[in-house]
Nucleic acid binder design. Structure first.
Lengths: 290, 290
DNA sequence: GGCAATCGATAGAAATTACCTATGCGTTAC
DNA sequence: GTAACGCATAGGTAATTTCTATCGATTGCC
């Protein structure tokens, strides 16, 4: 009652009459008569003088109007906020990712489409990214890794071939491509166990029966790159993550389909969230598995 | 729906849970589930993460909460205002009067009883006072005059004898009282036609068959006083309105009951107004005819 | 000066909304 | 492992809101 009464009061006060307010409010005039009557009766306060055919605010009504005007301004703001949220003219999208490679591209596209939505990116390893996702600290994760958790939904975004890279003084550096078999006995520096790239690579050489000579295992892309630059051996990396250098050369592997995949991962239970849907939709138009 | 939904949202957000909010709000928990569910469905926005057995605001929820908090603060203020109006801890009382004689006394008593109510007095002639009353510019009028208008309600407040006043060098000045008959042939200065005092006075001398000699008719108490001071004749005035002066002397009339009455006048249609009722009630305790 | 139009009040009924009880499912705590 | 806790669901009830029809009164127009 209190809300409806105040709303009717506000409308009548602003419209300057019951009939006008009723039209403006989309209700019938007796409704307003009843509601304002109830309000006045409950608090035993006259809010309007019904002077003949005209209504006029009492002093108490004037004071009340000042308050309700502010109140309904806030209400409008709340509804406007919700409306804008629905239309994604505002909101927040928080993304966790292991590297800036793909996520920047995705967020650029999303940002163009929904300029009102605030974007935030948390970079970290895949474990952290997944934990943030599960804890609702992020809405989306961009990962290579695929967790078999049924609570997760992973959408393949893009795949990249794994390439070998060497110093320019290595024989491979002169070639357009190599064959997997060429790696037999090669001194290689590899990623740590658990690396998605390593898993894909080892699967391929295992299937081909090729056995490079592993000289070092390092848990960092950047560190491997340094090691290769210093001539400790050759390395491999996802083509998307290869950083050019004057003394380095990336060489494709011709006869093997070794890929790493970038996935967009969300919580299945949040798949119907509006911002998340919009993000997947935006990203969906960018799918281009190499 | 919108209001109830927002109220439920506000309660859950502040209480930190549906059950706690339900208790605090005096409704059942499913009510809140339904209402917030409806709100979220209507705008397709998640406001809370229902994470296991705990609820947590989403970013959108946090933004909305900031708005609704302000909104409900305004609502509380509005209800508080109405509550205070009911208890007359605030409000306005506007009084119209012809002179400050009685109204000051009444307002002092009213002000002591209802310190929160703002008081205002408009002094003027009785015509103006009545017009202000009819136009709702004042709530109460304090008048001598009684209008026979059925729309008015006049409460007698106090009555005052009409006294004769003279210069101190006039024979009457030495007497404790005079009789009506003593006025026969006296040079008198009288009020204008329509004056309540004049009507009461003439009624009395008419009944007694006494005929003073009217030397002047003036439409102002102050002007009559000046005229008497200058020796143009003797005057009469309501005892309550007599202003002392070294050269003036007021003399009661022993054998006549000539009175003027102070009335508290209100519009009958507003007799049930809270402030007006309170005023009449306060004044009622002060009734003391004479 | 009379008639039509306008505005708010009233009465009674209909539709929508808000709300409750009972219960289920999953998690947390002892 | 069991009990307690917290939110979701289902179905029904109570309360509020709102409607239509009509009246009474005033204002404006001709």
């Amino acid at each position: 009652m209190r809300y409806t009464g105040l709303r009717s009061f506000q409308a009548v006060a602003q419209a300057g009459g019951f009939t006008a307010a009723a039209e403006q409010l989309g209700v019938s005039q007796p409704t307003l008569t009843a509601q304002i009557g109830a309000l006045e009766a409950e608090f035993d306060v006259r809010l309007f003088h019904r002077r003949n055919r005209r209504v006029e605010l009492t002093p108490a009504g004037r004071d009340l109007l000042a308050i309700t005007t502010r109140m309904f301004a806030e209400e409008r703001e709340a509804l406007e906020f919700l409306q804008q949220s629905r239309e994604l003219r505002r909101g927040v999208l928080r993304v966790g990712a292991v590297g800036p490679y793909h996520v920047t591209e995705m967020l650029a596209a999303f940002g163009r489409r929904y300029p009102g939505v605030e974007l935030s990116v948390a970079l970290g390893n895949s474990t952290r990214a997944l934990q943030d996702l599960r804890d609702y600290r992020t809405d989306v994760a961009v990962l290579a890794h695929i967790d078999e958790d049924p609570g997760l939904l992973a959408v393949p975004y893009r795949r990249h071939p794994v390439v070998v890279f060497t110093r320019t003084d290595h024989p491979f550096a002169a070639r357009d491509a190599i064959a997997l078999a060429d790696l037999q006995g090669e001194r290689m520096i590899v990623r740590e166990k658990g690396s998605t790239t390593r898993r894909a690579f080892e699967e391929a050489i295992g299937a081909a029966g090729v056995a490079p000579r592993i000289v070092m295992e390092i848990g960092s892309r950047e560190a491997i790159r340094e090691a290769v630059i210093h001539g400790l051996g050759i390395g491999y990396v996802s083509a998307a993550e290869f950083v050019a250098d004057p003394v380095l050369r990336a060489v494709p592997i011709a006869d093997a389909q070794i890929f790493t995949y970038a996935h967009v991962v969300i919580l299945r239970e949040r798949a119907d969230g509006r911002v998340i849907r919009a993000f997947l939709d935006t990203v969906g138009g960018m799918l281009r598995p190499e």
